[in-house]
């Protein structure tokens, strides 16, 4: 006798994850390698500032909004911050997720002692608040996307799809941990499957920015930095 929920969970943890990982890893490597190999011409103008230093700085500094802009698009800024922070907290600080990262990267198995760091996990209050806030932020962002003329004009299918794919893991994770409804095994399976959908969509959608933002911010900082201008 089989438990169909367990079969689904095992498919999600087994072949489902393998498929998602292959598409995610290969796809993202393709995207990044394509950019790097395309390359750019060396700049012949003598630098006034420090292109490399400012490029690296900008990768971080661009996370801080420029003064004044927040008033024009409060939902985008606040929603964006809350969503990203909430998502990261839930993703990187929930104990079971830490096991996942440990297992994938093998911190506690293969890494030298000194490098086998593992960060602590957060308690339920923080994880669930972060998840709930991230979902609320996503709802606010979608409201803004549907009602704001600029965001509506530039939105494509990609934007709506990615929104849905971000909501599903958050919502299903929340439901699974809290046993809000449904069989716990089924909800866990659905949660993992929703993450796999997100992974599969990664290289083909704007989700790519999660990796390529490092490159784009670096180039921005390097271009401006060469001229000694702010970035």
């Amino acid at each position: 006798m089989n438990n169909p929920y367990f079969d689904l969970l095992m498919w999600a943890r087994g072949p489902g994850f393998d498929i998602a990982l292959i598409i995610f890893a290969a796809g993202m490597v393709i995207r990044v390698v394509e950019i790097l190999v395309l390359g750019r011409k060396s700049d012949k103008a003598p630098a006034k500032g420090s292109p490399v230093g400012q490029g690296i700085r900008t990768v971080f500094s661009r996370s801080i909004p420029r003064k004044g802009l927040i008033n024009y698009a409060p939902v985008t800024y606040l929603g964006g911050y809350i969503f990203h922070l909430g998502f990261f907290i839930a993703l990187f600080f929930f104990g079971p997720h830490l096991s996942l990262f440990d297992s994938i990267f093998g911190f506690s198995h293969w890494w030298p002692e000194a490098l086998s760091f593992q960060w602590p996990s957060f308690g339920r209050v923080i994880i669930e608040s972060a998840t709930a806030l991230a979902i609320l932020a996503l709802i606010a962002l979608m409201y803004s996307r549907l009602t704001d003329p600029v965001r509506r004009a530039i939105s494509t299918f990609d934007d709506y799809l990615v929104w849905l794919l971000c909501v599903l893991p958050l919502a299903s994770g929340y439901v699974a941990v809290n046993k809000l409804f449904g069989d716990p095994t089924l909800m866990l399976a659905l949660h993992i499957l929703s993450v796999e959908l997100l992974m599969i969509a990664f290289p083909f959608t704007k989700l790519t920015h999660a990796v390529t933002f490092v490159l784009s911010r670096y180039y921005n900082g390097a271009i401006q930095g060469r001229k000694g201008a702010e970035s």
């Binding site: 087994g14 990982l21 995610f24 990044v32 996942l100 297992s103 994938i104």
Partner: peptide
């Protein structure tokens, strides 16, 4: 193995995917 950890041979596939991705990217 924790419930949240994939049960398959994912590490082998993942490494293969990275290699294949690099080749395809180039």
């Amino acid at each position: 193995k924790p419930l949240s950890v994939p049960a398959g041979d994912y590490r082998k596939y993942g490494l293969a995917a990275i290699g294949a991705g690099a080749v395809a990217g180039v």
